[in-house]
């Protein structure tokens, strides 16, 4: 039972990170290959802050969020002004550099063995942290994408030139998306650190970064619901497929799904729609009518 609760906690934590990346890659259309690095920043910062200053976990999480956001904006400031390719490259570089640094700076991070012995969640305490934070994140993100700012971000993804002409400050909104995604990834990293009781570099490899983007692409570019569903399916998957060579098969299926989705359903599984009660009611009504018509014939 506790095992499955653990899987649940991890799913919630990764969902926070995937929602963050969804704002950047899904809504704003800027792909990233290094957001596991920002999770690492959040994780190490939170663990180190809590350990050295003996403050509550909450303060550590905030510190991790802050530092990861600042770093993200620092990287975004020069690269978001130019062609999107350079941004992808920069995120890849920063993700890889953070990974290598966390291995190399042994006095600070503990090197490959990881940073240990800091104040962590005890047992089920994790759930009481993670679930409320996740709910707050979902609600805030929902209102953010429904707001004027959210619409501006989608507009600039669809056509940057047109967005610029109607007076949207494209650069500013790219920076906002970058900051938002880095803040959420930093938060998720911090939560992961206090849940795992150990932070080591292997938790934040480039494969993890790719997994985040893949989840967003599969869920639907520009759909919060899609990101949530993708997180619910993809995060527990490695736990379920633990037998022998299942890991390689899983990654092959990941890759294949990506290729097929991009070729045949470029908007992702959930497209850019959102789940809503009225939408569900309409869907049921439409399909029941269709079924009834079929029955009459």
């Amino acid at each position: 039972m506790t095992y499955w609760l653990g899987v649940l906690v991890q799913t919630c934590i990764y969902m926070i990170a995937i929602i963050g990346v969804s704002i950047l890659s899904g809504f704003c259309g800027l792909f990233t290959l290094g957001h596991a690095g920002f999770m690492a920043i959040g994780a190490y910062t939170s663990a180190i802050v809590v350990n050295t200053f003996d403050v509550p976990i909450f303060v550590g999480l905030l510190a991790g969020m802050l530092l990861s956001t600042l770093l993200g904006l620092l990287i975004g400031a020069p690269t978001l002004r130019i062609n999107g390719d350079y941004f992808i490259i920069a995120t890849m570089g920063i993700g890889e550099a953070i990974y290598l640094l966390s291995q190399y700076l042994i006095p600070v991070t503990g090197g490959p063995y990881g940073y240990m012995d800091f104040h962590s969640f005890r047992g089920m305490e994790a759930l009481f942290y993670v679930v409320p934070i996740l709910i707050v994140v979902i609600v805030v993100t929902y209102f953010f994408i429904k707001s004027k700012h959210g619409r501006n971000i989608v507009a600039l993804r669809e056509n940057e030139m047109a967005a610029l002409t109607v007076g949207i400050n494209v650069y500013r909104y790219k920076m906002i998306s970058m900051g938002y995604s880095c803040a959420l990834c930093g938060l998720a990293g911090g939560l992961l650190a206090h849940y795992m009781t150990n932070v080591n570099p292997a938790m934040f490899t480039s494969t993890k970064s790719n997994d985040l983007v893949i989840a967003v692409v599969l869920g639907g570019r520009g759909s919060l619901t899609g990101a949530i569903i993708a997180a619910m399916i993809l995060t527990p998957l490695p736990e379920l497929l633990r037998f022998s060579s299942a890991q390689e098969w899983r990654l092959i299926m990941y890759g294949l799904t990506i290729v097929l989705v991009i070729l045949f359903r470029p908007t992702g599984l959930y497209g850019d729609r959102e789940f809503s009660i009225s939408g569900l009611a309409k869907w049921i009504k439409r399909h029941s009518q269709r079924l009834m018509k079929r029955g009459e014939n």
């Binding site: 259309g29 792909f31 893949i214 692409v217 990941y254 990506i258 290729v259």
Partner: peptide, 24 residues
């Protein structure tokens, strides 16, 4: 005439397939 980002992501998918096929 898809967006260039689609090409980037599909490349990522193919590289994942390739590496793991070799491991298998």
């Amino acid at each position: 005439n898809s967006a260039r980002s689609s090409l980037t992501i599909i490349g990522l998918g193919i590289s994942t397939i390739g590496t793991n096929m070799i491991i298998l």
